[in-house]
Design a binder for these strands. Structure first.
Lengths: 375, 375
DNA sequence: CCCGACTCTGACAACGTTGTCCAGGCTCTA
DNA sequence: TAGAGCCTGGACAACGTTGTCAGAGTCGGG
């Protein structure tokens, strides 16, 4: 019997699903599961040749009709159209691509499409792509550098014309041959590692600094910071913003006030509770991204005394909570749009040197950052 | 001067961006913007031929090495690997696809990737695809039937192996030739129109009925319903659930209690305000989807007396509002996963007749549905 | 009536890969 | 040592499309 996974697997990809058997997948001579009938093109779709035969014209004439090229008599065109209709012919873009060299598709590699930050970003990229007649292939790296590389290279093998990448890894030298080969590339949200390419990011440093300043302006001095893993560029930048704001205000930062790590709710909950307990608890918390913010809101909801909060990234319904959640908002759609537009300018050839574009963030005050220290 | 849109446009797609000039895009002889150098393959990437030449072996030997096929001396393999490395060769999957007949990619057409309901759904489909070595091409129909068809057909032209479609239109006969040609197809969230295909949906009727029953059980009789356009199947089913619950309880439904239309906040706001005013205002509202729910929450937040609310679709932070928002939750990820798994079973050939699968919904009570009528 | 110009059409090669098939060299056995 | 059989490697066609180019047909003017 075939196991479900290998039955359909046209690319013969080695899927790294935790290899529970332990023994290697030996390529042997020919595994039974890999056997496939020789000319098995599933549906046997009609080709231009079939259309030509049926219409009684030459192959190239069909091509001309299909592509709206001039030089075909109305009568001939009619016959061809009829044959196309009758056979249910649909041009095979794979073959077209092979011939033309461009695939009219671009790839987007992000962390997790299910994250409310990346949905709008992806949609914005798609819209720009659509305006250029290109389709979008999406891939989630799950914040895993290997998986990012695997995805990017798979996309390159498909010969996408361009790549928008939200890096998970921090070394992108593996992309050098691709860049040289002309694959347009733009990095978003975080810069690329060891490679010279276009980058579109938010002002993570400035945004975080302003958010923390806001707390300081409302009288807080013991301010906690809970963020993502420090190896992630945005997390590091936001932490730097926090430190800068504190230093500028002459507040020495205590180690227990900072907690960086995975955004797993359990870890975040523990971090928040620790900061809020002890002899000198924080009176305000700055959270490093939307997931952390949501978890901390839950913790604070169950906390006896009010604690001020400013979060990085806007979250839906933040205005309806009591108090409303003050945030440093970045514009995910604008990030995606800017990146995609730059990508297509690369493809147009109207773009020269790689550049770093920084989009501003916006402090949206809703109350939670204005709470005075409760001691 | 070229206009930005047409400069990169490999597929020569007619982009229907509101044609503000009014005059048709004539194909003339050859527009200057369409001219492209004949053999311009952007980067001139190395091919297997180049690798073969450099390694001093035959073409097929390179192919064997690249695909891990047996029958190559370690020494030869080493030479080939070296050449691959040196040239930065990457197999061209377009050509491979042409030869093999399968593209190892599937298409997902949904309404809007930026909607928090579709993000997780898309991600779930992607995970299943990944487990089968396939990539995912995403497209947003923006709830427009023409755009849905345009997208689906573009995907078919790319010869995706399968399609997961969240229908915007209600007639899918245009897909018949594709189905006949062997494109695996599964419809999700809403059934297909005039075509026999697999469908995976939530129990919209039952979910809505239970939600409304919940309100009735807490003493409400004047219950409003605000939903999406009635031509959308899910909206119609949920309305039917509402009516059934009301009839079962012997409550005659008044016309002004029901409002169906676009989910545009302005429309929804107006609808809610109307129901809440007049001599006999509703004491509870059932909202037909996440976007409507969010808008209505905002309206209720500014309303003088408490109004009960149950919404279809869960929303983030619903538990932290005052009161918590009671919802009928559907599992977007499960919808996507189920559909994708069925798709690959079609591709495996282990699937026979099309089927309709209905996933259950879950009533999550958080308080807003338990408010008693305030009169 | 012929010739050139023009229009329409089709044969052919090429895109980069993989499947088929055969050749040559090797080992092993009788 | 010859023949059988295996192992390795390579030539070639095919996948479905598009670009090139040349041929066939038409028309008008000299």
């Amino acid at each position: 019997m075939l196991d479900a996974t290998s039955s359909y697997n046209p690319m013969g990809t080695r899927i790294p699903v935790a290899d529970r058997t332990g023994h290697r997948t030996v390529p042997e001579t020919t595994r039974s599961t890999e056997r496939r009938l020789p000319g098995t093109r599933y549906g046997n779709r009609p080709t231009m040749k079939d259309v030509a035969a049926r219409a009684g014209v030459g192959l190239k004439t069909v091509s001309r009709v299909v592509n709206g090229e001039p030089g075909v008599t109305p009568e001939t065109e009619r016959r061809v159209q009829e044959a196309i209709e009758a056979l249910g012919f649909r041009r095979n873009d794979s073959a077209r691509v092979l011939r033309k060299g461009r695939t009219a598709s671009i790839g987007l590699v992000l962390e997790d499409l299910a994250d409310p930050f990346y949905g709008p970003l992806s949609r914005a990229v798609e819209e720009v792509a659509r305006a250029h007649g290109a389709l979008l292939i999406n891939g989630s790296s799950a914040e895993d550098a290997d998986r990012e590389q695997e995805l990017v290279l798979a996309l390159c093998a498909r010969r996408v014309d361009g790549l928008v990448v939200i890096p998970a890894g921090d070394d992108h030298r593996y992309l050098e041959p691709e860049l040289k080969a002309g694959v347009a590339t733009v990095f978003v949200d975080r810069p690329a590692g060891h490679i010279d390419a276009d980058v579109v990011v938010s002002d993570n440093f400035g945004g975080a600094r302003d958010g923390v300043r806001h707390l300081i302006a409302h009288g807080h001095r013991r301010i906690g910071f809970i963020g993502d893993m420090p190896r992630i560029h945005t997390a590091a930048e936001r932490l730097r913003g926090y430190r800068t704001a504190m230093e500028d205000a002459g507040i020495p930062v205590e180690d227990p006030w900072m907690s960086l790590g995975v955004t797993d709710p359990e870890r975040v909950r523990r971090a928040a509770r620790e900061m809020l307990s002890g002899p000198e608890p924080v009176t305000a918390i700055f959270t490093g991204n939307n997931r952390v913010t949501v978890t901390v809101i839950r913790v604070l909801a169950g906390h006896p005394r009010p604690v001020a909060l400013v979060g990085f990234d806007d979250i839906e319904l933040a205005d309806l909570l009591q108090p409303g959640v003050t945030v440093v908002a970045q514009d995910a759609a604008a990030l995606g749009r800017t990146a995609a537009e730059r990508l297509f300018r690369q493809l147009d050839g109207t773009l020269l040197a790689p550049e770093r574009i920084e989009l501003p963030t916006r402090l949206i005050t809703r109350g939670s950052g204005e709470l005075p220290p409760a001691d």
